[in-house]
């Protein structure tokens, strides 16, 4: 029997409560596999709504310096897709129910094999995929396989400030949430959002039937204040990685950050 997807389930709950979603990104396998598993559990406890797990890749062209460095470090430590699957499987067996999204590059999926990848994700409970170098026009091969696989993850659609006339096409069959990239280029550009950011988000919101999330360059709830009423949630990646590294992966710091961001973002 098909269970509801964890992302869709969570977003439905948040909508009922009239709350915005808080989404974090962390590079898988840092500080090490065990530490990463603990951080996932801590984040669930602290109230992160959806967790993005970055699968390290040698050539992360959509990422800025912070995530590049984290990805490089993880590869040096031997992190790979198989080990991440094992870690997530263990976390799920320990009762963790937070929606998990893999953020990864298409070569990693293609190398593993599309069908085997879809089946494995479904089996261990990966709920979504964000693949920044797989634009809409290249998605059909993977999408067909996901459609055929029970409990397969949702392929999340990304929209950019320059997507313009492409937006209706991108959103037509989109599920889960729409990932609105806040600026041109790469992750982690410290709140230097695109000049037409609000207009662009309003345009996406007007076309979308599903929640829209904003990511790239967000550090605190104050950064998203100008667009708080347009978006349904925020994604923090590079800043979150910096925070973890600077605090030596302190569980307390991570929890406090998540709780503060969520509270501020949801202030009425």
């Amino acid at each position: 029997m098909r269970e509801a997807n964890r992302i869709e389930e969570k977003l439905r709950l948040l909508q009922e409560r009239n709350e915005k979603a808080f989404i974090t990104y962390m590079t898988a396998g840092l500080p090490d596999m065990e530490g990463c598993a603990k951080l996932i559990q801590a984040q669930e406890e602290a109230g992160t709504d959806i967790l993005e797990l970055g699968i390290p890749f040698s050539d992360p062209v959509a990422d800025g310096p912070v995530i590049q460095a984290a990805s490089y470090k993880a590869i040096q430590q031997g992190v790979n897709l198989k080990k991440v699957f094992e870690m997530v499987e263990k976390v799920r067996n320990d009762g963790c129910n937070i929606p998990i999204v893999f953020m990864m590059y298409y070569n990693t999926v293609s190398f593993y094999g599309l069908a085997a990848f879809a089946v494995k994700c479904a089996a261990i409970g990966i709920d979504g995929l964000i693949i920044p170098d797989l634009p809409y026009e290249e998605q059909s091969a993977l999408q067909k396989i996901l459609d055929k696989t029970e409990q397969a993850p949702i392929l999340i659609q990304l929209v950019a400030p320059v997507s313009k006339q492409r937006i209706p096409m991108l959103l037509k069959n989109a599920r889960g949430f729409v990932y609105c990239v806040s600026s041109m280029g790469v992750t982690g550009q410290e709140a230097s959002f695109h000049k037409d950011i609000v207009k662009y988000l309003e345009k996406v919101k007007s076309v979308s039937n599903i929640p829209i999330m904003m990511g790239f360059g967000i550090r605190t709830a104050a950064d998203i204040e100008p667009m708080r009423h347009t978006i349904d949630g925020a994604i923090v990646g590079s800043h979150f990685i910096n925070l973890m590294e600077e605090s030596n992966y302190s569980i307390d710091t991570v929890k406090k950050y998540i709780q503060t961001f969520k509270a501020e973002m949801n202030q009425k």
Partner: peptide, 11 residues
Amino acid sequence: GQFVSESLMNT
């Protein structure tokens, strides 16, 4: 093919 980010597709 065109394996680039969405922000380059119009370009």
